[in-house]
Design a protein around this nucleic acid. Structure first.
Lengths: 247, 247
DNA sequence: GAGTGGTCTAGACCACCAA
DNA sequence: TGGTGGTCTAGACCACTCT
């Protein structure tokens, strides 16, 4: 057992038992140096462990703050019928389309949409805001024939940021009116640590992973009508799903 | 921009462009010390960043190994009808019941099962193994009246580890036969960094978060028939869900 | 200004792995 | 045995926050 992991164990135990409640600060680094009679960097290694575990957030000039379990979570619900799902997603927080344009599908998106690489697609980037800061960045791709069918149906251009023809609650309805009713959605949820860009844009503190959702929605004949990749801060969102079990 | 984050940026870039492919090693710490003309700990700080991002895993006597994106994933599928879900879960890897006994529900479990705290429940712990090591630890609680109904139906004791009356594919069927057919399941999927115990039992490398699934399954009258908490290594599992959208 | 954490140095010794 | 990363020290200077 190394010195620094021993110190980390002590502090973790004290945090768990409530000796250092959320929002409070741990003893300062110089304090711990004298208390354990070790070098400064040894104490910092111990604090580094707790930081990586997501237990504390050191703040210059303040101290090592015990992280509060944030009760504010962006949760969304997958439920049949589809309207419920869409409504719950939209209702969880503010949803801004920050980017929308025609582009060419790369290999991965093309694969998910079952179209050829380079095909024209509508690409939309949305930010979900909940409380302070961005909780989730969502990228959506809609194949050309779907976007054009919606436009031909008089429901506007999906690639228009300023006047978005849909809100979250009725994109599926627009598709349905245009003759491409979504019938089934498949989601793959995974997790990893954020890269520096994601840490920056979503203001993710150290020790907090991201939740990644890959979604493909298909109409009854199996043809994809949209695919979405959503990346959310693990301390601000979770995914809630309610599924009926039929016998 | 600090020295160590500059070094980390260089190395990250080189990893992304394929200069250091998965499985290869970064230049050694002494190499980097002379290359950048900095102190050893500055290089280690840089490598520490990449380690926390999950990009590399330093190995004593070997070098700093670029982590391979592990293609082996434990994925399971939520799909109606329920049999499909159960079958997919079981088929994804080996599933061992390592513990099963009668116990008293704590406040959280009691709340999820809508019973009073301290009520008798069957508590079962399962390990899902996929490839090398445990990919997911799953804890399940079944309320007394459900477990007894299964037993009264002649289908055995859920708290029996040696002779488990169910496999994953038919626990819901046992409930159904016993007059408590599961009708709906709700899952909440979240993520965080593992605690030291979880890191140890699942052999989770640094920089890898865990995926947490809280599930409550209810019968048609809304009464819970089981609740499960599953904790899985983020580099070995993901959750896949396919949901029909009905209009 | 006093106290906090952040970065960096130069050097030492230890634990592990491969040839 | 030589090279790798892991731990630890003592000291220095910097950046930030609060009073």
């Amino acid at each position: 057992m190394t010195k620094y992991s021993r110190i980390a164990d002590d502090l973790r135990e004290a945090i768990m038992t409530g000796e250092y409640p959320p929002g409070s600060t741990l003893p300062s680094i110089p304090d711990l140096v004298t208390r354990y009679d070790v070098a400064r960097d040894t104490v910092r290694d111990a604090i580094g462990l707790l930081t990586n575990e997501g237990l504390v957030t050191p703040k210059r000039g303040i101290g090592t703050v015990v992280r509060a379990i944030d009760p504010v979570m962006l949760s969304y619900s997958v439920r049949a019928p589809a309207q419920t799902w869409q409504a719950q997603t939209a209702g969880a927080g503010r949803d801004d389309v920050v980017q929308a344009e025609w582009t060419n599908a790369d290999a991965e998106v093309a694969g998910r949409l079952a179209i050829s690489t380079g095909s024209r697609v509508v690409h939309r980037v949305r930010h979900f805001t909940k409380g302070h800061g961005i909780a989730q960045i969502s990228e959506q791709w809609v194949p050309e024939h779907i976007a054009e069918a919606i436009q031909a149906n008089g429901d506007g251009d999906l690639a228009n940021v300023a006047r978005r023809p849909d809100t979250d609650r009725n994109l599926f309805e627009l598709m349905s009116s245009a003759g491409h009713a979504p019938a089934e959605t498949t989601e793959i949820i995974s997790t990893r640590m954020p890269d520096p860009t994601e840490r920056d844009t979503m203001e993710i503190p150290p020790g907090v992973p991201v939740l990644i959702t890959h979604r493909v929605t298909r109409e009854a004949n199996g043809q994809p009508v949209e695919t979405t990749t959503a990346i959310g801060a693990g301390d601000r969102m979770s995914a809630q799903l309610t599924v009926p079990l039929m016998y």
